[in-house]
């Protein structure tokens, strides 16, 4: 009887068992990353409830009492805090600038690199533009001070010697925004060409040859072959960047800021740092963080849906 059951089970799931027998090592390899996500990403999520509770350092989040106004006290507090509203505005401002200016930069650079003929020069250029990616923001901010400070910074000394007035790169909010965006591009543009160039390699070289036969110049083949070839990659990257529209790095604004530009540089992450970690208002800043994540997820889904509507693959 038992053997009959077993054999009928075997028959029923023969396909699955065969499949698992063949690929079990791959599934074993998945275990580790899954464990990583569970331990470091999912379990910590239980602490999201801090946003709705009165935080205490000595209690587990399950024991903490609910916050006032049905647990929404800290969200109300955040949205009536002017600093938070400014931080929200600044985060959007800087990220939109980053997107508009910073997003096309690696695409253009990738296309340019693609057109370089001398192999050695190409390699050299690639290495040079990659380099800044490996510097930390603390180092870059130190360099920025040495280069851009009014009066003592190298760039400003040159500008002054040329007879112009020194430019307040770091100490005027409007200028600071551009300095922030420019330094961001400088740091990441080389690295971001990577993925695009990898996909460029997938384009069939015959297409270029055929185009050349038909008399297409470099510009034409770039426009009609390379760009459409990497279009899906560009869209994917765009969706991912839109997912970060309200996200904010911490080390970049924090290391580049100073008291004179605080009206432009106070973003959500630095707000969380000042009020939450230094000001010990953990519930308030968890609420802010949660809000930020929810908006990011909404943007991600919206961008993905939009991409699919226009006939692209999307990211899932």
């Amino acid at each position: 009887m038992q053997t009959a059951v077993a054999s009928s089970f075997m028959e029923k799931h023969q396909k699955t068992i065969k499949y698992l027998k063949k690929y079990w090592t791959l599934y074993l390899m998945l275990l580790l990353p899954i464990a990583y996500f569970i331990i470091f990403k999912y379990i910590p999520m239980t602490y999201i409830q801090i946003a709705f509770k009165k935080y205490s350092i000595v209690q587990s989040p399950w024991q903490m009492p609910w916050a006032d106004n049905n647990g929404m006290e800290y969200f109300i507090k955040a949205f009536s805090n002017r600093d938070f509203i400014y931080a929200l505005r600044n985060t959007l401002w800087l990220n939109v600038l980053d997107l508009v200016v910073g997003f096309p930069a690696p695409i253009i650079l990738a296309l340019l690199l693609n057109e370089l003929t001398f192999k050695r020069f190409k390699r050299f250029t690639q290495t040079v533009v990659y380099m800044p990616h490996f510097l930390s923001w603390i180092i870059i901010s130190g360099m920025a001070l040495k280069l851009l400070a009014p009066g003592t910074g190298l760039v400003n000394i040159v500008i002054e010697r040329l007879g112009f007035a020194s430019v307040p790169f770091l100490n005027d909010p409007t200028h600071w925004r551009w300095t922030y965006v420019f330094l961001g591009i400088w740091k990441s543009v080389g690295w971001n060409t990577n993925m695009l160039r990898a996909f460029r390699a997938n384009i069939d070289p015959q297409l270029y040859e055929a185009a050349a036969m038909d008399g297409a110049g470099r510009w034409r083949s770039m426009w009609h072959i390379t760009l459409p070839g990497i279009r899906s990659t560009i869209i994917t990257l765009l969706i991912l960047s839109l997912g970060h529209i309200l996200g904010s790095e911490f080390d970049r604004p924090y290391s580049l800021t100073n008291a004179l530009v605080i009206s432009a540089s106070n973003v959500i992450s630095t707000f969380i740092y000042t009020n939450g970690i230094r000001g010990l208002q953990f519930s308030l800043t968890t609420a802010v963080g949660l809000f930020q994540s929810v908006i990011c997820v909404i943007f991600l889904f919206a961008a993905n849906a939009l991409a699919k509507k226009f006939g692209e693959r999307g990211i899932w």
């Binding site: 001070l145 400070a149 009014p150 009066g151 003592t152 770091l170 100490n171 100073n258 008291a259 004179l260």
Partner: peptide
């Protein structure tokens, strides 16, 4: 000192 504000 002109740049005092820039240093943390």
């Amino acid at each position: 000192w002109k740049n005092f504000a820039l240093y943390a």
